[in-house]
Amino acid sequence: MTSPEWFSRYQKGQREQVWRELRELGSAVRSRPELAREAQLVCDEMARRARQNVETIVERLTDDGYRFHSNDDRQISQTPHMPPTVTAADSAAWLEERFGSVPMTVLSWMRLVGDVWLVGTHPKWPTSASGDPLVVELEGSRYPESSMRDYIIEEWEQWQESVDDRDDPGPFVLPVAPDQLHKENTSGGDPYGIILPDDSTDALFVSDTTTPFVSYLNYTFAHGGFPHETGSPEEQRIKAALAHDLLPL
């Protein structure tokens, strides 16, 4: 196989083609060091672009008077974007040690983007929480009093128990966000998450459907960080302004 030049092609705008090739290659992307390095360069650039989008959305929402808060009755003020801490790379390495294979897009997100929490209330769109605002929390920076690693281990152990109790428990899904209903402070279903282990380049993101992580992010950014349509004209105007000139991944 000749060098695919994925990174160069990605930078030139051939992003959809590059992701298609990487997904078709599957775990074989790790079979040769030069392929793995090239794929990781693409994932890191994806993460840098995603971080710029997150920062832009947070700035625009803040300028609009948006209140970032917890998804409960108390509505405690929250920091919408927690950049990676100095231990982010260690946390990514631990995840690999624990599960064996973690998709490259997840590792890049942990090292370069950080944790994102866009749940809140817009002054001109009171039901903004129903828009399924973007949340991706892999390092657990909003919970300094808790251990994200302990939480992950507990979730894994609960899944292992279900393996013993059910014929087909399905794959383990690493929780990274509350589901749409929990985001708007109503009872809901299972958290959104990432299927592990997985030695592919791009992760599978599980929400109400299962889709490639980057596809989910692109769709979410195309809707200003709020991918669920509720239909009001004011909502559409706000989301279009939030999404203006965001970077495709």
Results as ranks from 00 to 15, higher is better:
Val176Asp: 05
Thr186Asn: 09
Tyr151His: 10
Asp168Val: 10
Glu145Val: 03
Glu184Met: 15
Ala129Met: 13
Trp117Pro: 02
Gly193Glu: 08
Tyr192Ala: 09
Val119Lys: 10
Leu181Asn: 15
Gly120Trp: 09
Asp150Val: 03
Pro133Lys: 08
His182Pro: 05
Glu154Phe: 02
Asn185Pro: 07
Gly188Pro: 10
Glu157Lys: 12
Pro175His: 03
Glu155Ser: 12
Asp168Ile: 11
Gln158Ala: 14
Ser187Arg: 11
His122Ser: 06
Asp115Phe: 03
Arg142Cys: 00
Ile152Glu: 01
Pro144Trp: 04
Val135Asn: 03
Trp159Lys: 04
Ser147Arg: 02
Pro191Val: 10
Leu138Met: 12
Val176Ile: 15
Glu139Val: 04
Trp125Glu: 08
Asp167Ile: 14
Ser128Leu: 10
Gln160Asp: 12
Leu112Trp: 02
Asp150Leu: 05
Thr186Asp: 10
Gln160Trp: 01
Trp156Ser: 11
Arg111Leu: 04
Val116Trp: 00
Pro126Leu: 15
Trp159Val: 01
Val163His: 08
Asp167Lys: 12
Glu184Tyr: 12
Gly193Tyr: 07
Ser162Leu: 13
Glu154Ile: 01
Gly170Ala: 13
Leu112Thr: 01
Pro191His: 09
Phe172Cys: 12
Leu112His: 15
Arg111Asn: 11
Pro175Met: 03
Asp132Lys: 04
Glu155His: 05
Gly188Trp: 06
Pro144Asp: 04
Pro126Lys: 14
Thr121Ile: 15
Thr121Asn: 13
Asp150Gly: 02
Asp132Gln: 10
Glu155Asn: 03
Pro133Tyr: 03
Phe172Arg: 12
Val176Pro: 01
Arg111Pro: 06
Arg166Pro: 02
Val119Ile: 15
Pro133Trp: 04
Ser187Cys: 05
Pro171Glu: 14
Met148His: 13
Ser146Gly: 01
Leu118Pro: 04
Gly170Ile: 10
Tyr151Ile: 02
Asp150Cys: 00
Ala177Phe: 06
Val163Lys: 15
Pro144Met: 07
Ala177Leu: 09
Val113Gln: 04
Val113Leu: 07
Gly140Pro: 02
Thr121Met: 13
Ala129Ile: 05
His122Thr: 08
Ser146Phe: 07
Thr186Val: 15
Ala177Lys: 05
Val163Ile: 15
Gly188Ser: 11
Asp115Trp: 03
Val173Asn: 14
Asp150Phe: 02
Pro169Gly: 11
Asn185Glu: 11
Glu155Ala: 10
Arg111Lys: 15
Asp150Met: 03
Leu138Gly: 01
Val113Glu: 07
Met148Arg: 15
Ser128Lys: 05
His122Ala: 07
Val116Arg: 00
Arg142Ala: 05
Trp159Glu: 03
Gly131His: 01
Trp156Gly: 03
Ser128Glu: 03
Trp156His: 12
Glu155Leu: 00
Ile153Leu: 14
Glu161Ser: 11
Leu134Ala: 00
Ser147Gly: 05
Glu145Lys: 08
Gly140Thr: 00
